[in-house]
């Protein structure tokens, strides 16, 4: 990630599927990111292609998606597909109410990290901060 050398802060694009109203976890994570000096951009999306476009425009170092209604496998597969199409290599991470049984499948699909129920925002901060070094 060459761009990072010209930028002081890690830039995280945080996204929520527009029809999943759960945003408490996301609010906490975004607040912790900002406190840790991570630049945060937030967007809603209903079409994975929109998200890929925003990720490209924002030149994000990492893209985080929150899913709490059971749509995580669908979202992961469609978002990864549109990221591949645009050749976006920013790691995709997920959080929210994601059953532990589905985590191996998500990682297999290409999601880099899953922060399910019980993860602390600091876990995500550690992971994302580590991306710049």
């Amino acid at each position: 990630m060459v761009e990072n050398q010209n930028r002081e802060k890690v830039k995280a694009l945080m996204a929520r599927f527009s029809l999943d109203g759960h945003d408490r976890g996301l609010l906490s994570v975004m607040s912790s990111f900002r406190n840790a000096g991570i630049e945060v951009v937030f967007t809603y999306f209903s079409d994975p292609k929109e998200l890929a476009k925003v990720a490209e425009e924002e030149d994000a170092d990492v893209v985080g998606i929150t899913c709490s209604m059971g749509q995580h496998l669908f979202v992961a597969s469609t978002v990864l597909e549109s990221f591949n199409e645009r050749k976006i290599d920013a790691p995709l991470i997920m959080g929210g109410v994601i059953p532990s049984g589905d985590i191996p499948q998500l990682l297999n699909m290409g999601i880099k990290k899953v922060f399910g129920p019980g993860s602390a925002p600091s876990d995500a901060v550690d992971y994302v901060s580590g991306l710049s070094s």
Partner: peptide
């Protein structure tokens, strides 16, 4: 489900992935 909450019909592209959830 949330498409019903918001008033998006099931064949609306915005409803994709969310039908029957919750």
């Amino acid at each position: 489900d949330t498409p019903t909450h918001c008033g998006f019909d099931p064949d609306d592209p915005r409803s994709r992935g969310m039908i029957g959830l919750g």
